[in-house]
Amino acid sequence: MIQIDHLVKIFTMGENEIRALDDVSFSIAKGEMVSIMGPSGSGKSTLMSIAGCLDVPTSGSYLLDDIPVEKMKDSQLADVRNRKIGFVFQQFNLLSRTSALENVILPLSYSGLSARACREKAEKALELVGLKERMKHHPNELSGGQQQRVAIARALANDPALLIADEPTGALDSKTGAGIMDLFQTLHRDFGQTVIVVTHDSFVAQHTGRIIRLVDGRIVSDALNANPLKAGTPRPGAED
């Protein structure tokens, strides 16, 4: 499903060159749930923005469903983001002036569906994340966990092949974060959804079946996790 080879991303800031990604190669199969783990500044977000077609690599190749993404035109990339990828951000990034439902409709409205089809699909996605009865609420009337669920519903609205979550629990307390991880596990288990979770927290990473560790833009380990934690398991050492 994802095939990344010798990926390099260099940011130039004046005289300085920052090698955010340095020869990264890996692949992810359909139906996997993988976490990308590493300390802050290790290049996780940069990697995910390329995987999510929000940015292009400096060099290297990226095949998404066997299609070379780096050769795509701007409008084709927009369509890939719209149809194939669902992105969940740490800061939710909901439009504050619109209701939960309209936030979820947003990606659908760019895919040429009728108003009715948009609404139906958006309601279905909100139902999936358990917020159907709150769909008329605006983001400021929802809790952080609920806002992140709306964002997940938005990411799922167009039935994406790949769900990418960049620090999805980073802005939430541990209990609410566990709820979000539970939702991802459910999507993965019950619907075979391919999920990539980015985190700097190894406890969060333990919830996925495979962990890729990133340090200074390089992959330092890529290992399967035979017994992923079930969401809601208490954090070791945490007082309860």
């Binding site: 999510g52 369509d79 983001r81 990034n93 938005r154």
Partner: peptide, 14 residues
């Protein structure tokens, strides 16, 4: 907001 719209699939024309 514009970044988000692009992230969820808005083309330039949109």
């Amino acid at each position: 907001e514009i970044g988000l719209r692009k992230a969820v699939g808005a083309r330039k024309n949109h």
